[in-house]
Write a protein that binds this DNA or RNA. Structure first.
Lengths: 223, 223
DNA sequence: ATATACAATTGACCTAGGTCAATGTCGTCA
DNA sequence: TGACGACATTGACCTAGGTCAATTGTATAT
């Protein structure tokens, strides 16, 4: 199963794992550290699509066109597993479970993106940042890290870019959350003091540690 | 190949194809008509995630959890093909190409969602509506319909919800675009007069009829 | 034909959050 | 140790677009 996986030497902060339009050869799994993926618009503006933590898979969006639509850059010293896609495919013809596992992961990615679209399209700045922090917390928790205390490897500007906010707004919200007693910020270090109340601020479905979930249908106000 | 596909009787406007948390049995392909998919938040608020035109596939986000995270509702009289997922999977163990075709479609869906996240996160109201119209136009064109003239099956309110705008803003933009000579609106009917200039307004990468594309990397301002 | 209800438009007003600018803090390198 | 440069914070101001409300147009039911 992991006979095809190749462990590469670690990336340093700022190194690219791949760039936009690089040919698609491999999926990548983060072993340690973190990365951001981003698109750029014609004017050179960067649009961050995601932050990627240990245990997460990168590159699923490249399968269709056989090249990477986004670039991936390390936010800190980061080690990566390379998974050659060709090998993965031939292996999966033998292992029936592997194929459907891949489908499940991609389906989950689509769900997560849908969740992000709700956040970007419908939520206030406050709700966005709270959702972001709760989401990070959940992801750390699932991987066995502390859910109440972690370091942000990305800058305020990266967070703002990702959430569709100005970096000044992000900064102001951090101090506001801190004054409200929701959390303690020290530079990159975050401690969630009152995680439950932060969930309330995020306006959602997340206090149970189960992230990226959707909500029961309502009575349905006809059409 | 299409021995497993079942054609159901058509849905009427307002009918649900499935609701949130319905168990996942089938993928669905739109044959004619159109639908919207949406999540609802705890307060009953509807969040539209997509509009679905003939030839498009719905339900890929349900594979992971074996239930539908979104609801799908017909915007007009709509006919649908049901594709039982179980059958699809067993069939794909025999046909090698089918499996990878499915992966490609899901990968494309992830790319499309990423594209939408850029629109929601980074674009102005004007750019959002222009992108939306160009995107629709491209999708119609690819399916053999007119790229310059089509009917919107969704309300202004649906469009606003989808784009993260108030319906009043959508309405104002339609009249503005019309006054600028970009298009002609009559209720639900849209005629794109100056598609190229509308592309300019959308601030993107779309005038060539190839939608959902990403852009070359820039010189990269280091870090 | 008329009533009803919903969809769309338009205007007036207001506010969340963006922009610009000044200042502060930290980490790195000579 | 000091100076530079990136990052972060904070304040003052401004505007894109949201909200509220009135009006009109359109479609369905009686």
């Amino acid at each position: 199963l992991d006979s095809i996986i190749d462990r590469k030497r670690p990336l340093l902060r700022g190194d690219h794992l791949f760039r936009i339009d690089d040919p698609f050869q491999c999926l990548y799994a983060v072993r340690s550290g973190s990365l951001k993926t981003y698109a750029t618009s014609e004017d050179g503006q960067e649009h961050i699509m995601g932050f990627h933590l240990p245990g997460e898979l990168i590159g699923l969006d490249a399968i269709a066109e056989r090249k990477h639509p986004l670039a991936a850059k390390a936010l800190e010293t980061t080690s990566i597993c390379e998974i050659p896609f060709h090998d993965l495919q031939s292996l999966s013809t033998q292992l029936p479970g592997l194929q459907s596992q891949l489908l499940r992961i991609m389906s989950q990615e689509i769900r997560d993106d849908e969740h992000n679209m709700v956040i970007l399209g419908q939520k206030s700045a406050e709700e966005r940042l709270a959702s972001f922090l709760i989401g990070l917390s959940n992801r750390f928790m699932r991987r066995g890290f502390s859910a109440h205390q972690f370091n942000l490897s990305m800058s305020r500007s990266d967070i703002g870019n990702y959430l569709g906010l100005a970096l000044e707004t992000v900064s102001r919200l951090f101090t506001r959350f801190q004054n409200e007693g929701l959390l303690q910020v020290d530079r990159k270090h975050i401690e969630l003091i009152d995680r439950d109340r932060l969930c309330v601020f995020s306006g959602a479905q997340c206090s149970d540690g189960n992230p990226r979930r959707y909500i029961q249908p309502q009575p349905s106000k006809s059409q």
